[in-house]
């Protein structure tokens, strides 16, 4: 299947966001980027996201950042700072992820280069069902093939994230709570919008199957 280019859908958003990149609430009053060099900042991220950026199971699940596309990483950091993502979580994600634009770009570029093994811990018996949905979608439920955008190996591209090797419980949570945690305020057109109907149409069983499948891709 052909890869769908999202450039058309996203152009407006990405250009719009670049102008207000420095505008996070807590992020602006406590500029996290000023306190240290890039190496020290990456250490800070790894304290939560795992010593190699492969993800970590705490009280919350920290997602894998290693090998993620830098464009997507920067987009999400901006979404946290602008309060577009996870505003209902018990932890202030905008404060935790507050970085100035230069530091954001530097840190994202570094994480994209990393390639540790997957975190593991997914139930392996679900992967086959997940592979089918990933490659073919579920036409009768209006669910497109994930591979069309996320790529046949799940490695993503540009603003479309890598799913390969992502921590199982993180992918499950993300797809189950998309509307609440990553849904746009009314009228907002963001890169998260294309996933909203897809996530809504997936059943819990389908979500678990896909999350198990992609967690083992490398």
């Amino acid at each position: 299947m052909q890869r769908i280019s999202l450039r058309f859908l996203l152009r407006v958003t990405v250009l719009g966001a670049a102008g207000v990149a420095a505008g996070g609430s807590d992020g602006a009053s406590r500029p996290a980027g000023s306190g240290g060099d890039v190496r020290a900042k990456i250490e800070y991220c790894m304290d939560c996201h795992g010593r190699q950026g492969q993800g970590y199971h705490g009280f919350l699940t920290m997602p894998r950042l290693a090998g993620q596309t830098s464009t997507y990483l920067e987009n999400q950091l901006r979404a946290f700072m602008e309060g577009r993502r996870d505003r209902n979580l018990f932890i202030n994600m905008s404060r935790v992820h507050g970085l100035n634009p230069a530091m954001r770009a530097a840190v994202a570029a570094q994480f994209q280069q990393l390639n540790p093994p997957a975190f593991g811990s997914a139930p392996s018996n679900l992967a086959a069902a997940g592979a089918k949905i990933y490659e073919e979608g579920v036409p009768e439920a209006n669910i497109p093939a994930c591979s069309a955008c996320h790529g046949p190996d799940g490695t993503g591209q540009g603003e479309i994230p890598r799913l390969a090797g992502q921590v199982f419980s993180y992918t499950v949570r993300t797809l189950s709570t998309w509307n609440r945690d990553r849904g746009a305020a009314s009228g907002e057109q963001t890169s998260a919008a294309v996933m909203a109907p897809i996530a809504r149409n997936l059943t819990p069983n389908q979500i678990a199957a896909i999350a198990a499948y992609v967690s083992n891709l490398r």
Binding site: A32, A40, I91
Partner: peptide, 26 residues
């Protein structure tokens, strides 16, 4: 609850939980 991001100190709550109750081996 929030760490001190500019000093690269993490928010403990992400792992130890909002009521410092821990979970599994944490």
């Amino acid at each position: 609850d929030g760490g001190i991001p500019q000093e690269n100190v993490v928010a403990c709550t992400a792992c130890h939980g909002p009521a410092a109750e821990g979970v599994r081996e944490i």
